[in-house]
Computed example of a mutant assay.
Amino acid sequence: MASTSYFLLAVFLALVASQAIASDPSPLQDFCVADKDSPVKVNGFVCKDPMHVTADDFFKAAELDKPRNTKGKVGSNVTLINVMQLAGLNTLGISLARIDYAPLGENPPHTHPRATEILTVLEGTLYVGFVTSNPNNTLFAKVLNKGDVFVFPEGLIHFQFNPVHDKPAVALAALSSQNPGAITIANAVFGSKPPISDDVLAKAFQVEKGTIDWLQAQFWENNHN
């Protein structure tokens, strides 16, 4: 009986521990530069032969120093540096993004399914926030100025908005995954291909189907580059 209890306890602790590992696993070697040409498909990328690795695998030239075009509908532009742009990030559990905001520009509500984000304002002012999960859906929001830092927990819906009418803003974000992913809420719900049934969305948002049809007919811009 005692041995059964110990076994069940061990299984429970193993399950708890497995649930606690919610981000990229720790690397088991110095580096694992992504071999994007490998036909082998794994969770991440196969390692490039270390004998063929060079300093350039860990380098990206002058990618984040220039202002980006923010003339789109949402007035923001996200420049990503993840494993797809920098092969040396493979298995290291981190990535980076520069975000440019036009006056009154917004990085719309979105989530990163695989990463926590820490954001630093480099120039200007931003109103930022995130919403907790059900059932409370509590909004945590702040106005940030140059040098201020804010954290968005992994998987939660969050946003950034430049409330200033005549000045742009710039922020730098670090994320706890080599490939954090981004799900922009409006794009995913109203711009999916093929579209979600208007019956489903009308019921979910408690509006007329005509409203859903109008929303689905809009162009939902992707501001992630």
Rank of each mutant, 00 (worst) to 15 (best):
F140D: 15
Q85F: 03
P103N: 10
D24N: 12
Q216G: 07
S197M: 00
A173Q: 00
P27N: 03
A87Q: 14
S3I: 09
H165C: 04
P103C: 07
F45P: 02
P27K: 12
S192Q: 05
S192N: 14
D100P: 06
K142W: 03
N223E: 01
A62Y: 07
K66N: 09
S192D: 02
L64Q: 00
Q29M: 09
E221G: 07
D35W: 05
V46M: 14
H224G: 02
D213I: 13
N77A: 15
L28K: 14
V143A: 09
L201E: 06
L139S: 13
K41L: 12
E208N: 13
S5A: 13
H112W: 01
L104F: 10
A115H: 11
C47A: 11
H110S: 00
L89T: 02
N162E: 14
K203Q: 04
A182Y: 00
P113K: 14
L172Y: 06
L122W: 03
P195V: 00
L13P: 06
A169N: 11
V11R: 10
V53D: 04
K71T: 15
D65V: 10
V11Y: 04
S76I: 02
S95V: 01
F130Q: 06
N82L: 02
T54W: 05
I212Y: 06
I118Q: 02
C32P: 08
N69S: 04
V42A: 12
A115C: 11
F7M: 11
M51K: 13
F150N: 05
T211K: 05
A2Q: 15
K73E: 11
E208W: 03
P108L: 08
K209G: 02
L9M: 12
F190R: 15
L13W: 06
F45G: 03
H110K: 01
P195T: 00
V200Q: 00
W220K: 13
N145M: 09
E208T: 09
A62R: 14
C47D: 08
N162W: 09
N179D: 11
T138W: 12
E208G: 11
P153A: 07
G124I: 09
P108C: 11
G72V: 00
L8M: 11
Q85N: 10
D198W: 00
F59A: 07
N223S: 02
Q19G: 11
K36I: 11
D24Y: 05
S177E: 05
L28M: 10
T125A: 04
L64S: 01
V151L: 08
V53K: 12
T120N: 04
A102P: 03
S197A: 01
V207M: 09
T132N: 08
G105D: 03
F45W: 15
D56Q: 14
L139Q: 12
S3P: 04
D30W: 06
D199P: 00
A171P: 04
D56S: 12
V53W: 11
V164M: 13
T70S: 05
N82M: 01
V207P: 05
L86M: 15
Y6I: 13
P113C: 09
G44V: 10
P109F: 06
V83S: 08
M51A: 11
V131Q: 05
C47G: 07
S5Q: 06
A171W: 05
P195Q: 01
E117D: 08
G124V: 10
V40R: 13
D24H: 07
N145P: 01
A202Y: 00
V128L: 06
Q206Y: 02
N90A: 07
N134D: 10
E117I: 01
F219R: 09
G44S: 07
